[in-house]
Design a protein around this nucleic acid. Structure first.
Length: 293
DNA sequence: GACCAGGAAACGA
DNA sequence: TCGTTTCATGGT
């Protein structure tokens, strides 16, 4: 059976929060439809009462690529049970964006995107990623024939680019980092597929061997592309939240905050930090002294 | 203009 | 193993 339309039956799925919480950077929403590109396929998504309606530009016989990306088969209720019940800050954030999921993204796209993310706002990351795709991505079929749609550029294409061409995508000092990472992946020096079989610490060390990839960016990749539940990226927002809400505004050093997060959210650190991150981006006033989250 | 952004490397102590 | 500085660019 070949079709361009498909219904994903899900409950407790917050599509808008999932696609706009800062874990992926290519999704856009127009008129209630989210459109983006998953594994080189254009797809439009709409939340309905029955689930998620998906539409592609090319007929599909198998939708596993999409259900895997969206993680629609994850039991959300069981997921909630893994969160500490007595963590009132986390529970408040979960309540505000109930049904938000972590995606399962392509490792290379995720790694490249987060190399570009350092000290940039989410809106700027989206802009740089869009420029990169526009200039280096392969064209793919889309719904409007007069428009061009592009896949995320393969590492081989980035590897053959000039640093100046990359800088022209407004990525600044991150350009040599991206170029080096693309060469490592394209040459086989870094095998992204083999990372899936490693423990958290070993996989993290491999990623951190890349110039421009520290603990935070490595954890983003291990969480958003490999689904390691204990990968818990601590960025400026999460660090601020931990200090304000869990350490009574004490100036606790970053490594100590990371250790605390690992203990506090054992088994669910990835989800916990993502709910807090998304909540705080919508409610930055929650970090003001004396304000309960 | 000052200040900050989903950081990390290089440096000096 | 720490704190500081620097990196490029755009938004507020």
């Amino acid at each position: 059976l070949n079709k361009c339309d498909h219904l994903l039956c899900v409950t407790d799925y917050n599509l808008a929060a999932t696609l706009d919480c800062g874990q992926a950077f290519r999704w856009r929403e127009t008129g209630g439809v989210w459109h983006g590109i998953v594994k080189g396929r254009w797809v439009g998504l709409r939340r309905t009462s029955r689930g998620i309606e998906a539409r592609t530009a090319v007929p599909q016989t198998d939708w596993h690529w999409l259900t895997n990306y969206l993680q629609t088969k994850v039991d959300f209720e069981r997921l909630l049970e893994s969160f500490p019940a007595d963590d009132r800050h986390l529970q408040a954030a979960v309540k505000a964006h109930h049904g938000m999921r972590l995606l399962r993204q392509d490792p290379w796209e995720c790694l490249a995107s987060f190399i570009l993310s350092s000290t940039k706002q989410v809106s700027q990351i989206k802009q740089v990623v869009a420029l990169l795709c526009e200039r280096f991505g392969e064209t793919i079929p889309g719904p409007v024939k007069t428009e061009t749609y592009r896949a995320f550029p393969v590492p081989e294409r980035i590897a053959s680019a000039l640093e100046e061409e990359l800088r022209a995508c407004k990525m600044g000092f991150r350009a040599p980092y991206l170029l080096n990472a693309a060469r490592a992946v394209a040459s086989g020096n870094l095998n992204l597929q083999s990372l899936a079989r490693l423990e958290l610490d070993e996989a993290r060390a491999r990623l951190m061997s890349l110039h421009g990839v520290g603990e935070k960016i490595a954890d983003c990749v291990l969480l958003f592309a490999y689904g390691l539940p204990d990968a818990c990226p601590v960025d400026v927002w999460i660090a601020r939240a931990l200090r304000e809400l869990y350490f009574r505004r004490r100036n606790v050093p970053l490594p100590q905050l990371r250790a605390f997060a690992a203990r506090q959210w054992r088994g669910c650190g990835g989800y916990a930090q993502q709910y807090l991150f998304h909540y705080l981006r919508h409610h930055p006033e929650a970090l003001k002294p004396g304000t309960a989250l």
